[in-house]
Nucleic acid binder design. Structure first.
Lengths: 208, 208
DNA sequence: ATGATTATATACCGGACAGTAGAAAATGAC
DNA sequence: GTCATTTTCTACTGTCCGGTATATAATCAT
């Protein structure tokens, strides 16, 4: 492991933590979109002056890409963690959709999903954004598939359970929940969507 | 019916058809997003000068809303029409997802869906956009539900078939296909997603 | 302390963009 | 033909926005 107390890098130390700054940039992009979020607003929200943003993160597109990464690592991953941490598949799937519900409902941040509702808009004009979107989608589906596969190996799912198919469907239904939330769906509707999704993903899993 | 050959409205007649102009605005918003589409580009694509756009449609937000309506009436409705026009439910659902595949694949226009991938971005900051999005989602789901209900009444679906639930799922999976396409998914992946969706919607419908 | 180095703050620049005057063109009314 | 009316074209405006130059502050090295 590298020595964390290594010599400070010589000049004036920066007055902010990059990850904290990205955390504060997330809701701005989330609410306003990529083009709608201007650097003045971002600078204020992040608590970092504009020149420091450019020095630390690069231009607006680079900042957005790093914000996407930070979002994936802190917010987007929560449903996957809930699934992985659960004691069994059934409760894990339910927990994952509960986490999705919380993510997209607007309680913490804005409604919808930074990837599904904001990055998707820019994906057609910005290849780097499209790449991250594709990678995130693939990674999500793989992670879910791996969890379901493990559950099947533990005997929680029938031998013929279509693991990969349900992993893809679970990914799709989480994104669809984000869109419903973005359109202003009430919390009850979102909860119903989550319940439906759980049933669909687990259909045929011993008593579905 | 109103006389179509009524007296022309007095002044200089406009040199463009509003619906045609909206048809040509659709791909611009579709590809570039609301904020990314500037009025210069829109004006050129529509073949209508900027002042005429403002005179005919109002400001940029009003233009976008009318473009959304036109999109819904010409592009977004195609899967629903395919479902409604099919001889039976099974082939109708397959035809609807085939139409969705065509819509989102980028063959005509851009990848993804103007509602799911573009309007969603602006929905958080523009209440009118959010309203249209919610209305479109609700209308789509209702229309699908009505079709499935009719099919069930004709005996093509079992008595206990969860019509409303499957209508919601079908709506969700069409939107998820749009997101996959927007992220750059290959045509084969999209086709697989469509096949999965058909199976999921029809599961339990006599031989699913 | 002095200088090298890196970060921050203020203030600014050039360009792009939404929206609009104002003049000119095309029609109906008479 | 002439006037009123509506559209269209050219050119413009004020503003906002991404990005930066310049000066200053805070640290390390010696």
């Amino acid at each position: 492991m590298v020595d964390k107390s290594a010599h400070r890098p010589r000049g004036r130390p920066r007055g902010f933590d990059p990850d904290d700054a990205l955390d504060r940039a997330i809701p701005v992009f989330w609410r306003l979109g990529y083009e709608g979020a201007d650097l003045e607003t971002l600078s204020e929200a992040m608590g970092v002056g504009k020149p420091s943003i450019y020095a630390a993160f690069g231009d607006k597109e680079a900042l957005f890409l790093q914000t996407m990464d930070r979002y994936a690592a802190t917010v987007g991953c929560r449903p996957l963690q809930a699934l992985a941490d659960a004691p069994d598949i059934a409760s894990g799937v339910a927990a994952a959709f509960a986490a999705t519900l919380h993510n997209v409902s607007g309680a913490g941040g804005a409604r919808g999903c930074l990837a599904a509702c904001v990055a998707a808009d820019s994906a057609e004009a910005m290849p780097a954004v499209r790449g991250r979107l594709a990678a995130g989608l693939e990674a999500t589906q793989q992670a879910i598939g791996a969890c379901l596969e493990r559950g099947r190996a533990r005997g929680e799912l029938p031998a013929g359970f279509p693991v990969q198919e349900r992993a893809a469907m679970m990914t799709d239904l989480m994104h669809a929940m984000a869109l419903r939330a973005r359109s202003g769906a009430e919390c009850g509707d979102l909860r119903a969507a989550a319940d439906r999704a759980v049933r669909a993903v687990l259909a045929g899993a011993e008593g579905g």
